[in-house]
Simulated scan of single mutants.
Amino acid sequence: MNKILTLKQFQDLVTEMIGLEPHVEITGELFRMDDEEHGIEKAAEVRGFSRHAKPGYEITFDWIAWGNLDGYLIDMFDFTIEPFTKGEYTPVFKGATVLDDYKEPFEGHELAQKILEQVKPEDWTRWIVDILPEPRMLI
């Protein structure tokens, strides 16, 4: 049987789950210095996902961290992290059907929006900052 949650129960669950340390994984990174002669632009980005879970429930954020491209190499590691939509929406909530006041289920994109409205960016990005690459010493 599928679990059913009211909006209030869902919001309480989201608050609890976002406070739990997630599984965070980097799935790709790109660092490239520009070369005007060959038409290559400077790029700095890291992609990954964060999975906040407790038994029976899961919230997954796909994210992208953009490096600051205004300065020198060291500045490229000053990241701005934001949700990255690979599929239809992000974040993704799994584990229950959430009903509105009229007993109608929320769509996935509506739940994603509710999570983003409720959770401050620093609450879900704080776990990511620690695993982002740091500038390596050039020899």
Rank of each mutant, 00 (worst) to 15 (best):
T6A: 06
W127D: 10
F10H: 03
T80M: 10
T85G: 03
I128T: 00
V119C: 06
P91I: 07
V119Y: 03
H23F: 13
H52Y: 11
G19L: 09
G28A: 14
R47M: 14
Q118T: 08
L116R: 04
P91G: 00
L13I: 10
P22E: 07
V24H: 02
T27N: 08
I4M: 11
G95W: 04
V46I: 09
T6Y: 08
P22F: 03
E16Y: 11
E37V: 13
D34G: 12
L7F: 10
I74A: 14
H23R: 14
L73A: 11
H23T: 13
D35Y: 05
I131P: 05
K114A: 15
D101F: 09
W127S: 07
I139Y: 10
A112W: 00
T80K: 06
K94L: 12
V14D: 03
A65T: 09
L111H: 08
R126G: 09
D123Q: 14
D35P: 00
L138F: 15
W124S: 00
K114Q: 12
E37P: 07
D34T: 07
L7S: 04
F84R: 06
F79N: 06
P105K: 04
Q113L: 15
D130R: 10
K8M: 14
I64E: 07
I18A: 07
Q113G: 00
L111A: 01
D78C: 12
F31P: 00
E29Q: 13
F93H: 05
P91K: 01
T80S: 09
L13Q: 03
D78L: 08
L116P: 00
E16N: 13
L99P: 00
D78Q: 12
T90G: 06
T85S: 08
Y57F: 13
I115F: 01
I115K: 00
Q11S: 11
I115R: 05
V46Q: 08
K114S: 08
D75F: 05
L116K: 02
F49L: 12
G87T: 11
W66T: 12
K120M: 15
Q9W: 01
W124R: 00
V46F: 04
K3V: 10
T90P: 00
R51A: 11
V119K: 01
E41G: 06
E21K: 12
K54T: 08
L7A: 11
A112K: 00
H38C: 11
G71P: 02
T125K: 01
Q113P: 03
R136A: 14
F10N: 01
R47S: 12
L73K: 01
T15L: 15
